[in-house]
Nucleic acid binder design. Structure first.
Length: 210
DNA sequence: GGCCAGGTGTAAA
DNA sequence: TTTACACATGGC
């Protein structure tokens, strides 16, 4: 089983739809932070309130009172921590965002990781969906799927990345495929619960009856 | 009513 | 370097 086999199975049996819909890059950035360990439904409510308030720009977020921002994103949970993260990331966008397109993927990833609240997965979300870099996203769903498919057991994001990135490169995935792949995995992950876990879900996937 | 969602940071072992 | 824990809301 190759990663491309896995991609083919998902592509044939999962409806990804319009993955990560957003009106702007900054909306993707805000959504990526708000969705950390949080249901997307809760994030949509926050994004809606931010839009209503005209606050979906880095300038607005750095200038806003902490309490005001906390209130707008309350539905996404961890709202005090995420307020700090959003302000830090907004500051980064204002200070360094212009340089991002010219940076190497490695340098850009390091720069993002230095922002409080941006860990491996969020950095890769942004690399892929905002900065158009070819990266595979090893979120919890992806790691469970990779385990069920026999690629190995990875406790952390970085261990999965270190082990699987060489395969991603070797199999030559395009940016669009990787963006699609992540969406398919997350959609499949939501559905996997109905199967009682990824092992059973993967069986169905293999059998073509997912 | 318990579980968990499109993780990250910090501090102890 | 690994593990444990805090962070918090809302839907099923």
């Amino acid at each position: 089983m190759s990663l491309r086999d896995l991609y083919g199975l998902l592509n044939a049996q999962v409806e990804a739809g319009d993955w990560w819909p957003a009106d702007s890059d900054f909306e993707i950035i805000v959504g990526a932070i708000l969705t950390q360990n949080t249901n997307w439904r809760n994030v949509e409510m926050s994004l809606g309130r931010l839009k209503e308030a005209g606050a979906l720009t880095p300038q607005a977020l750095v200038e806003m009172e902490e309490e005001g921002l906390q209130d707008l994103i309350r539905s996404s949970g961890f709202y005090r921590a995420k307020t700090t993260y959003l302000k830090a990331m907004s500051r980064w966008v204002l200070d360094q965002g212009d340089q991002a397109p010219a940076m190497s993927t490695e340098a850009l990833r390091s720069s993002l990781l230095a922002v409080p609240g941006i860990g491996g997965e969020t950095a890769d979300d942004l690399l892929l969906y905002v900065y158009q870099r070819p990266v595979f996203i090893y979120d919890l769903y992806a790691r469970r799927l990779l385990k069920a498919a026999g690629f190995g057991t990875f406790k952390t994001y970085d261990k999965a990345k270190k082990a699987i990135d060489p395969l991603v490169e070797k199999e030559g995935f395009t940016i669009m495929e990787l963006a699609d792949f992540h969406g398919l995995i997350v959609e499949a992950g939501k559905k996997a619960r109905a199967y009682g876990g990824w092992d059973r879900a993967f069986e169905a996937l293999l059998a073509g009856r997912f």
